[in-house]
Lab assay of single mutants.
Amino acid sequence: MAEQVALSRTQVCGILREELFQGDAFHQSDTHIFIIMGASGDLAKKKIYPTIWWLFRDGLLPENTFIVGYARSRLTVADIRKQSEPFFKATPEEKLKLEDFFARNSYVAGQYDDAASYQRLNSHMNALHLGSQANRLFYLALPPTVYEAVTKNIHESCMSQIGWNRIIVEKPFGRDLQSSDRLSNHISSLFREDQIYRIDHYLGKEMVQNLMVLRFANRIFGPIWNRDNIACVILTFKEPFGTEGRGGYFDEFGIIRDVMQNHLLQMLCLVAMEKPASTNSDDVRDEKVKVLKCISEVQANNVVLGQYVGNPDGEGEATKGYLDDPTVPRGSTTATFAAVVLYVENERWDGVPFILRCGKALNERKAEVRLQFHDVAGDIFHQQCKRNELVIRVQPNEAVYTKMMTKKPGMFFNPEESELDLTYGNRYKNVKLPDAYERLILDVFCGSQMHFVRSDELREAWRIFTPLLHQIELEKPKPIPYIYGSRGPTEADELMKRVGFQYEGTYKWVNP
């Protein structure tokens, strides 16, 4: 592979701008107003304001973009700056750019259920340069409990009458099928589907988006991507930290609602779906819905739930269990780990287990898709061969690698495990991989909904998990304890083995 010439960040961002501006969906010269509902909250200060700053800094926003914060707290732009700027990672050389960014910011205080507050917000936006005809993007960085009041008031008082209007809704989209349907029906009564952007930030990850290209742009994968060759698929999300004093919020939802029903299920769809007619948003989402419709409700015998306990040999936070978090209700049975087996009941995947695993306070930070292939028929190497695996590593250190057998150097035919490896950090030294939120917010500006969740996708996802969630809430089974920093409950490994996964433990990928 030829040595790549190092590029400056300015040059890299210039390439990104060229890609972005050559499309006809990006209205570079139009006025846009980006409204952050819930501007005083954690999500706004840690993710949304920093993301908008990065896009502005790199010249990736339309030229005439204004940012308006809205929340109940009586704040000023200076207050917003004070709480969000520490997350910007701005350099001293960017000081003038930073001043320009905050000059485009404003803030309006108001209630979430008060019509007069929204009329005041609308008047404020109209007073901005060309504000009355601007395109408006409303980001709901809010708890779902206020979605209905907020969307109703936005629709009645704050819509642009000339430009387009788009609304970005953060997960969780309800707690179960019934609450999700209620919320979807409410929002759909106010906005068209092409105006609604239900954001799952995992769909903005580079390697998640790469799944489609790997599958449908490489001839070698087509013939082997089926039940005849693939023994099982494992989708993993692991965090090495616990709730760390923020367990009160987590306890309301648990690990299945927080990660599995959305992030992991979306990745499953991209692995299992048929080739779409095109890369058009609805063509892709149509195929994802077909996959979900082929999955039956989760069966309790295919589920393992766990909850982390303190590690007596650990240090600091590792010595504390979930129930030691003062914000967690006493005696909570909320799971911090889950392993679930699903089956896609169609011709391509009949009988292939899709194993979804996620948890907190585990032994490493990792998100990946792992396809394990069947054993080689007619073994001539005296059971020395391990199964081939194709691994798409989402985070950290984005990579695609194939675990395969090669001859060990020497005189004899002794096979050993090795890999074919594409590590993004080595291959793409001159490429700026956008943060997931950067990519998705740019998608909203461009009107691309491919990486957002459609209402029928959402409904099918909740259909699969709601009976299990209701059973857990009714019966309150005690989750299996696992030690902070471990791989999780051993019962999860036993479940995976029972459905056909072979864990060798003899080879570990190392970032080159």
Rank of each mutant, 00 (worst) to 15 (best):
A2I: 12
A2M: 13
E3F: 02
Q4F: 07
R9W: 04
T10R: 10
T10G: 15
Q11H: 07
V12E: 11
V12P: 07
C13S: 06
C13R: 09
L16N: 07
L16S: 05
E18C: 10
E18F: 04
E19F: 04
E19I: 09
L20H: 03
D24P: 13
F26P: 14
H27S: 15
Q28L: 13
S29T: 14
D30Q: 09
T31A: 13
I33R: 01
F34M: 08
I36Q: 00
M37K: 00
G38C: 03
G38S: 03
A39Q: 00
A39W: 00
A39D: 02
S40V: 07
G41F: 05
D42T: 14
D42H: 14
D42S: 11
A44T: 02
A44Q: 01
A44S: 04
K45H: 10
K46R: 11
K46N: 07
K46L: 05
K47L: 14
P50K: 06
P50I: 00
T51N: 05
I52Y: 07
W53R: 01
W54T: 13
W54S: 06
L55I: 03
L55R: 00
R57V: 03
G59L: 02
L60M: 06
P62L: 03
P62C: 02
P62M: 02
P62T: 04
E63P: 08
E63K: 12
N64M: 08
N64Y: 04
T65I: 15
T65P: 04
T65L: 05
I67N: 00
V68N: 00
V68K: 00
V68G: 02
G69W: 04
Y70S: 04
R72P: 13
S73Y: 05
S73F: 04
S73D: 06
R74S: 09
L75S: 07
L75K: 10
L75G: 04
A78Q: 09
A78W: 10
D79H: 07
I80S: 02
R81K: 09
K82W: 06
Q83S: 10
Q83D: 10
E85D: 06
E85V: 11
E85P: 00
P86T: 06
P86D: 08
A90G: 04
A90N: 09
P92V: 07
E93K: 13
E93M: 06
E94I: 02
K95N: 10
K95V: 04
L98M: 08
L98H: 02
F102T: 02
F102A: 02
R104L: 06
N105T: 12
N105K: 00
N105V: 12
S106M: 08
Y107D: 00
Y107T: 03
A109Y: 10
G110C: 02
Y112T: 04
Y112K: 04
Y112G: 09
D113L: 06
D114I: 05
A115Y: 09
A116F: 09
S117H: 05
Q119C: 14
Q119D: 13
R120G: 10
L121Y: 00
L121D: 00
N122R: 07
S123G: 13
S123Q: 10
S123D: 13
H124L: 09
M125Q: 00
M125L: 15
N126G: 10
N126V: 06
A127L: 04
A127V: 09
L128P: 10
L128K: 09
H129W: 07
G131A: 06
S132E: 12
S132P: 13
A134F: 04
N135K: 15
N135H: 07
L137M: 14
F138Q: 00
F138W: 04
L140T: 02
L140Q: 00
L140G: 00
L142S: 11
L142V: 08
P144T: 11
P144H: 14
V146M: 06
Y147D: 07
Y147H: 14
V150D: 01
K152A: 13
H155M: 07
E156D: 12
E156M: 12
C158S: 03
I162P: 14
W164S: 06
N165Q: 04
I167H: 00
I167V: 09
I168N: 00
I168D: 00
I168R: 01
I168K: 01
V169Q: 13
K171E: 05
P172H: 08
P172T: 05
R175I: 10
S179Y: 04
S179P: 03
D181P: 04
L183G: 07
N185H: 09
S188N: 06
S188D: 04
S189N: 14
F191E: 00
F191Y: 09
F191H: 00
R192P: 11
E193I: 02
Q195R: 02
I196R: 00
R198A: 04
R198L: 04
I199F: 10
D200W: 02
D200M: 11
L203C: 14
L203D: 15
G204A: 14
E206A: 11
Q209F: 11
N210G: 10
L211D: 01
L214V: 15
A217W: 02
N218L: 00
N218S: 03
R219F: 03
I220M: 14
I220W: 15
G222D: 14
G222T: 06
G222S: 12
G222N: 11
P223L: 02
I224F: 06
W225N: 00
N226A: 06
N226T: 08
N226L: 01
D228V: 06
D228K: 12
N229A: 08
A231V: 04
C232T: 09
V233F: 02
I234R: 14
L235K: 01
F237Y: 14
F237A: 03
P240M: 10
G242F: 08
T243A: 12
E244I: 10
G245L: 08
R246I: 14
R246K: 15
G248S: 13
G248C: 11
G248F: 11
Y249L: 14
F253N: 15
G254M: 01
R257F: 02
R257A: 10
R257G: 14
